[in-house]
């Protein structure tokens, strides 16, 4: 797939983020082109989730700039960033447990833009995850782990994202379900949605990624083409210590 002809969708330049007085990101720069799948990998506490939270406006960067479609977004509140088409699917899913599957999906389409195409979007989502249509009147809290992850992704899709950011979608899922999730991510990407993926499952995420960044201690220590990094000894070392 030739990727270099495409326009830049999201660009982080020298982003630093602090939790109180603790620095979690140090001068992180990265770029995502339209239509790509990009992975961020790294061990626990390396700053992966912080990166996503900074992009989505949940955390404020202490310095640096974030551009989405050429527009500076680092000072916008989260709801405006969502409205622009940057949607984060949080780790541990964070569904609305006492609402039905359908209500969760409707809340996904909360922004004015997303509301317009809600019905068609719902069809697309149900085609992607047929199990959700079967369960649409069930309370989200009663779904199985795999179904909950599907719902979390589907809810994010309802927001009509241009960029979908997934935080550890395979967390706590059985191997078979992990495969399904990655299939779904590929299919979403095939619909033209750019994907930013955080994963512990290095093999799966790198093998579907166009590009990947390795974070260590809040810094980008390595970047490159996804599959190429699979053979990189540094990646192996970061994870296995061997």
């Amino acid at each position: 797939m030739p990727i270099w002809g495409r326009s830049i969708l999201l660009k982080l330049e020298n982003i630093s983020t602090h939790y109180g007085d603790v620095q979690a990101l140090r001068n992180v720069s990265l770029g995502i082109k339209e239509g790509q799948i990009v992975s961020i990998i790294g061990s626990n506490g390396a700053g992966k989730t912080t990166t996503l939270n900074t992009i989505s406006g949940v955390l404020r960067a202490s310095s640096g700039t974030i551009e989405f479609l050429g527009r500076r977004i680092e000072n916008l509140p989260p709801h405006q960033i969502v409205d622009l088409g940057v949607v984060q699917i949080p780790e541990a899913r964070l569904l609305f447990p006492y609402m039905t599957v359908l209500e969760n999906l409707e809340l996904g389409a909360y922004t004015p833009k997303a509301r317009k195409g809600k019905e068609e979007n719902l069809k697309v989502v149900f085609r992607l995850f047929p199990v959700l249509e079967e369960r649409k009147t069930q309370l989200a809290g009663t779904l199985s782990g795999g179904e909950q992850q599907m719902l979390a992704i589907a809810r994010g899709l309802m927001a009509k994202p241009k960029l979908l950011m997934l935080d550890e979608p395979s967390l706590g899922l059985a191997p078979l379900l992990v495969k399904e999730v990655f299939e779904a991510v590929k299919e979403i990407n095939a619909h033209g949605i750019t994907v930013l993926l955080i994963e512990q499952n290095v093999f799966h995420s790198l093998s579907i990624s166009d590009e990947a960044y390795v974070l260590e201690n809040g810094r980008v220590v390595l970047e490159g083409e996804g599959k190429g990094l699979l053979d990189n000894p540094q990646v192996k070392e970061a994870y296995l210590g061997i």
Partner: peptide, 24 residues
């Protein structure tokens, strides 16, 4: 209503509500 659902969503899971584009 959407506003009503946003209120309920906020009571159940504040962070997710924020990520769904709800002005909390």
């Amino acid at each position: 209503t959407y506003t009503g659902k946003a209120i309920r969503a906020l009571a159940q899971e504040r962070r997710a509500a924020m990520l769904m584009g709800i002005n909390i």
